[in-house]
Structure formats: C-alpha cells, structure tokens
Design a protein around this nucleic acid. Structure first.
Lengths: 218, 218
DNA sequence: CAGCATCCGCTTTGATACTG
DNA sequence: CAGTATCAAAGCGGATGCTG
C-alpha cells in the first residue's frame, strides 16, 4: 500500500496494517498462534496466494510478524506475531465487538471457520458459576472446518481447538445460531427451530452468558 | 471495497471501515466534530475528491456517518458521525497509540495538521498539578495549518483549535519535536536544538507529562 | 503437498480538469 | 464551495505452473 504520508499515529498504523487482508492475517495469527502458510490460507478464505505472500512479507518487514524457518521436528516454516504484533489483540477484539450489529444474520455465501467463534465468544461470555466444576461444550458450526471446544476457566470462557475429548454438550448448526444461543439472545427452542442440534446435557448452557460489562477493555 | 464474505466480526468491521481512507475520514470527524466537505478535504491531504465523496457515501450507507443538508445560518451541509460511528473513538485512539514506535521521526515529505496532535497528546498526557490554576499552551507546528490550544482540565489535557486567546506559552517548530518535548522524551535544550521556538513561560511545560498508565482504555 | 512465482482480466485508486 | 467526469496507473483475484 502507498503510505498516506501523514505525520499521524492512525495514518502510520494504517500504513502497516491498513492494507486489504493485513488485519485478517493478524487475526489468524492471534487465533492460531504460530501457523504454517497453509493454515493461514485455510483461515483466510478468499485470499489469493500471491497476496498472502506479499502481505506476510510486508508485515514482517514492518516488524509485526516473524517467521522461523524450520525446527527439526516440523519440516515447515512457522509464522508468528512479534510482541508488537501481539499488541494488536485488544484492537482486533474491539473492532469485532464494534461490528456486533452487523453479525445478526449470516449470509448464505458467507465463509465460516469454527475458530473465528473464539473472538466473539471469549470477549462476550462469562461463567456464571465459576465455583462449580468447569464445563466443556463442543462447537460444530456448519461448513466451518474443525470443531472447537469451549471451556470455562476461572470465570472466563476459553475457546480452543477440540482434540476430540468428550464434552458436556455438543452444539451443531449454523454459526449465527450457536452465537445467538450462547449470547442468550435466543432460547433453546428458537435455536432448534433454526436448525441447531444439541447433544449431551443442554442444561450446562445456562452456566455461561454475556458479561454485564460490554465495554472496551484490554 | 469488496466484502470479505466472512462471518467474523473483524471482517465485517473491515467491510465497513477497512477501505483506504475510510478510517482517516472517521478520524477527521472525531477530531473536528461536524465538518464541511472542504474541512474534511483539508484534514485529509492526499485524498482525491472523488474518493472522499465515495467514502462518505459508503460510510453513510453503512450507518457510520450522516449529513445534514443545510441549516438556515450556514449554507452548506455538515457531515458528522452517528452514535455508532462515535464508538470507533477508542479504536482509533488505540491504533494511534499502537503506532507510537513509528512516530519517532517526521519524514520531510510528511503532511502535518495541527489538529492531529490532539490524538497523541490527549491520550498520553496528564496534568501533574491538577489543583493549580489551569494552563494553556499554544501549539504552532510547522506547515500544519491553524494553531491549536492545549489546556488542562480536571487533571486531563485537552487540545482544541485556538481562537487566538493568550496562552502561557507558545511552541512553534516541527511537530515531532513538540510531541517529544511534551512527552518528556527530550528536554528543552534538545528541543531548541531541533528548531523548537518557545515564547512565554516555558516552566508551565513541567506541569504536563505522560500518564503512568499507557494501556488501552476507553 | 507446502510455499511460493507468474500471468491476465478486472476493479479501485489517484491526479487532474471541469461544473453548478 | 462542493462536488462530477475522465482516464492512466496500481492493486486485486483467480488460475496456473514451478520447485523441493
């Protein structure tokens, strides 16, 4: 991208991460941690291969991303965020929250990846009974790749890739319905009417819900 | 911009404000408040007029911006942010702070506008002696248009356009030197060596300095 | 297969000129 | 002042091909 050529912090930031796809690459690295080129490509449906390469190089040049060229066990390079790049996390979260009014309905043609759910869910949900035994809910959004596991941890909610361990409940269906249900915007009956399938102990769902404080925070 | 077509909050946000120039238009409206087309253009050096029009329309369509078509006294339309658009303020501030490592030196060709200084200064500085009488410092960065007035208010620092009222001190010179001096990164001697001119009571400068808490906050 | 590089048609951007 | 109109250049998306 051409530089804006403005002596202004925002303009400088956008010189670095304002290119098309750049912020989404940061999102992937925030969600996936160190990732291979192919993992990034899978998490960025719609990107052209040459653009992914270009952006990674630009971000590396700017100091947002580094790549390690190959450790003995894995035969491939890993891309990761620098500490400075990591500091984009609250900004990425805040932008996602700002866009919540746009997340109501999932368009038919929208791409979905299960790990994207970690962004809204972790920043929105809390465990209402943190004293009780932790719960685990497997999330299987439709056409969204690998399932994710939502678990409670010290009052917070964490979402990570599932390694197939048994969960208290399994939710399958459209991603927007899963989010609306967990956020408490719709009930179980409505969710089922919108094609959600629930296996396991549905009552654990009551354990989690939106935090009262919805404002910006680190 | 083409939609990313991803069911993800960040992607949705970037569908709205991820276009080139869009965020900078938001910056101008945050800094200027309701503004005329020409005020926006002056605050966005480098933008093409057709792009400014296109972006304003897209932002309006998305619900970030509105324009009022002409109130009796002024003969021209005013553009302003919607409440939803206003909510981008902490994000714009956070991006500007994130880019602080890039703000060290001002390139020769960089555009500067005095009102841009409000972003780093207001988010970084505090009044160290809030009990004492408020102070006022006029800022006259080089080739940066209208001077701004920095004033203390209840422990915080505010920067607004100067209406020519007398100030305790007047700082003229390169914008980066003004920032570095106020941030306490350089002393008065160094600042003078870097072409800063000070008129008035330089000692009021000691009243303000960087807050200890530099983290993200609303 | 992972990690690119190259090519090509299309869209977006930028610079300038022009208009009510 | 507040935009339109025009057009060349740059950027993007998609396909394909190459290399270890």
């Amino acid at each position: 991208m051409r530089s804006y050529g403005q002596f202004c912090g925002l303009a400088r930031a956008l010189d670095v991460v304002g290119d098309r796809w750049s912020m989404l690459i940061v999102r992937e690295l925030l969600l996936q941690g160190p990732a291979r080129y192919t993992d990034l490509k899978n998490g960025l449906p719609g990107i052209a291969t040459n653009l992914l390469v270009d952006r990674l190089r630009e971000l590396e040049e700017a100091g947002v991303v580094t790549h390690q060229d190959a450790k003995p066990p894995v035969a491939t390079a890993l891309f990761k965020l620098t500490p400075w790049g990591e500091q984009l996390r609250p900004i990425v979260l805040a932008l996602g929250r700002w866009a919540r009014p746009l997340m109501g309905k999932q368009a038919r043609a929208d791409h979905v990846r299960a790990h994207w759910l970690a962004l809204p869910l972790e920043s929105m949900l809390v465990d209402r009974s943190p004293k009780q035994r932790p719960i685990r809910i497997e999330l299987r959004p439709m056409r969204a790749g690998k399932p994710m596991l939502l678990e409670t941890h010290e009052g917070r909610v964490r979402v990570r890739t599932s390694d197939g361990e048994p969960a208290d409940a399994v939710l399958s269906g459209p991603a927007d319905v899963i989010i609306a249900l967990l956020a408490g915007r719709i009930g179980l009956a409505t969710a089922r009417a919108r094609r959600l399938r629930v296996r396991g102990h549905a009552r654990v769902l009551r354990r989690i819900g939106p935090a009262s404080d919805t404002r910006l925070s680190a």
